[in-house]
Design a protein around this nucleic acid. Structure first.
Lengths: 121, 121
DNA sequence: ATGGAAATGATAATCATTTTCATTTGTGGT
DNA sequence: ACCACAAATGAAAATGATTATCATTTCCAT
């Protein structure tokens, strides 16, 4: 098992805490970091295992990695231009907890994304 | 532009209204239907455009197509054994609509899944 | 320095999806 | 029936993200 390369996490942070593996890789290349694509994938995977980042999917299926935080939020994404708005999801947190409890699930997490067309598109 | 092959929709329905393109294709093959993978993809895409089905993503990034309907539900999935429970998500529907309206988004859909450990695991 | 474990990265493999393009099918007009 | 033309089809190749392989390098503890 491999441990995460710290430069990967640092780059993800610098990218706004929200980027795909390919983007992190290209970003590091542009900044002159010497690192292989494989290591980027491995590091991100490891960060996911350690619950330091979590992963969700773009519309085209590409995985995007996002820093976890206490301030867990969700996204409202425009299908057309990709504009993303972070939104509060207190209602979701409650819903997830309630549903989990009702069905005897524990240690639960959740994903919730809203997608549509923004006012400009 | 191409129109959807009706057998594709029929197969998706028979699959429980929830399957990937590859699965629909294999299902049709097994049932002796003569159809190409390309046509399956094209038909599903067309059904999405016509808002007859919508598309979301599996954890591994594969696109899954689901019949649109009033009886829109969500899933509570066990990370360990895979057991899945369908749950009501009225709260989510309201939340999604409210958030979309607040930010000027229209034509919105959403995904929401809860995952954790079931009582047996 | 030395041996072994962990980390790295180039390359190849995998797999869903899309593109290309030649062929087939359907349709309307004559 | 025949012909022309558009739409539909599908085999095969291209694409692009992700994963697997595996030889090499780096890190430590002795």
């Amino acid at each position: 098992m491999s441990r995460s390369n710290p430069r990967v996490l640092s780059t993800l942070e610098r990218a706004g805490g929200f980027a795909s593996a390919q983007e992190v890789y290209k970003l590091m290349q542009r900044e002159g970091e010497k690192i292989g694509l494989t290591t980027v994938y491995r590091s991100l995977q490891s960060l996911v295992n350690d619950k330091i980042v979590d992963v969700l999917r773009r519309d085209d299926g590409e995985a995007i990695y996002r820093l976890c935080g206490e301030n867990h939020h969700h996204h409202l994404v425009c299908k057309s231009c990709g504009e993303t708005v972070e939104i509060e999801g207190v209602a979701i947190e409650k819903w997830a907890k309630a549903m989990a409890a009702e069905h005897g699930f524990r240690d639960v997490g959740h994903t919730a994304e809203i997608f549509g067309l923004c006012s400009k598109c």
